[in-house]
């Protein structure tokens, strides 16, 4: 038996919106301590990793580990039934064939229920090693979104360069070349801060179109954390207050 109730259901709605363009069918792992999922996009370039702790739920019960295979596209359709102020409850029996999703609005007394059919997914699970990232950049999520969006209109690829003084996003395309450079900024206004933790500088190139997809999660968190290592995929991380973390991994582009 699994049951989890989230008071701020909008968070779940935003999570589904933030991953639905990247992954299609996903195994959701339920454990007594929380909910997690890991899934790659069809081209094996990007990976979504979500971890939600039971502590963030108003009510949480999972007697055993369970795997719930869902179509994210269909889950997104169901989530559209939810009002932004709804509480969301997820329920599944042992050996379940469907996931029951309940939306409740205590103010308007409206309740919506949907039984989403579960599917069997044979997905590849990757072992992601613990990595000591040599550059970690914490940046306002709205600002990072805007930078990626605007640069994408100029080039398909961005080069991210870090050093102890700044992080630089540079593009080169038919239109020309240029860069956005952000220095370490720990101003009093927290939302303006850009925090650089660089032990070794990194220079890597990435497909901007994926970053734009990841940035849908910017509504979940005021800050985006970019974790870089010269020999590893980029991690774009969004902390979800009191509940967990949504991470995206993106493989770099390498010069031929």
């Amino acid at each position: 038996m699994f049951e989890a109730k989230l008071t701020e259901g909008l968070i779940l709605k935003k999570i589904v919106e933030s991953i639905k363009d990247i992954v299609t069918d996903v195994n959701i792992d339920i454990s007594p301590s929380g909910i997690s999922l890991q899934a790659m996009d069809s081209s094996h370039v990007a990976l979504v990793s979500l971890n939600l702790s039971m502590d963030g739920f108003e009510h949480y019960r999972a007697d055993t580990n369970m795997v719930l295979g869902v179509s994210i596209a269909n889950l997104a359709k169901v989530m559209k039934l939810a009002d932004n102020n709804d509480q969301i409850t997820l329920q599944a029996d042992q050996e379940a064939t469907h996931l029951k999703i309940i939306f409740e609005n205590p103010k308007t007394e409206r309740t919506t229920e949907f039984n989403l059919n579960l599917i069997t997914i044979d997905s590849e699970h990757l072992a992601i090693p613990e990595t000591e990232y040599s550059s970690v950049v914490t940046i306002n999520s709205g600002e990072f979104s805007k930078i990626c969006k605007e640069l994408f209109s100029l080039s398909e690829t961005v080069q991210i360069t870090t050093n102890t003084d700044y992080v630089q996003f540079s593009v080169e395309g038919e239109v020309g070349s240029g860069q956005v450079r952000l220095g370490h900024n720990d101003s009093e206004k927290k939302e303006d801060q850009t925090i650089l933790e660089v032990s070794e500088s990194v220079q890597q190139q990435f497909a901007i179109r994926y970053l734009n997809m990841f940035n849908k999660a910017s509504t979940l968190s005021s800050f985006t954390r970019l974790c870089l290592h010269q020999e590893q995929p980029l991690v774009v991380e969004f902390k979800i207050d009191n509940l967990g973390v949504l991470k995206y991994f993106l493989a770099p582009k390498i010069s031929d």
Binding site: M40, S43, H44, V45, A46, L47, E124, H125, L126, A127, I128, P129, T157, Q205, A207, Q232, P233, F249, A251, P252, K253, I254, S255, D256
Partner: peptide
């Protein structure tokens, strides 16, 4: 420029 795959960095669990 060549797009690398994640599977060239991470192995199957």
């Amino acid at each position: 420029m060549q797009q690398k795959a994640l599977t060239s960095f991470f192995s199957s669990a």
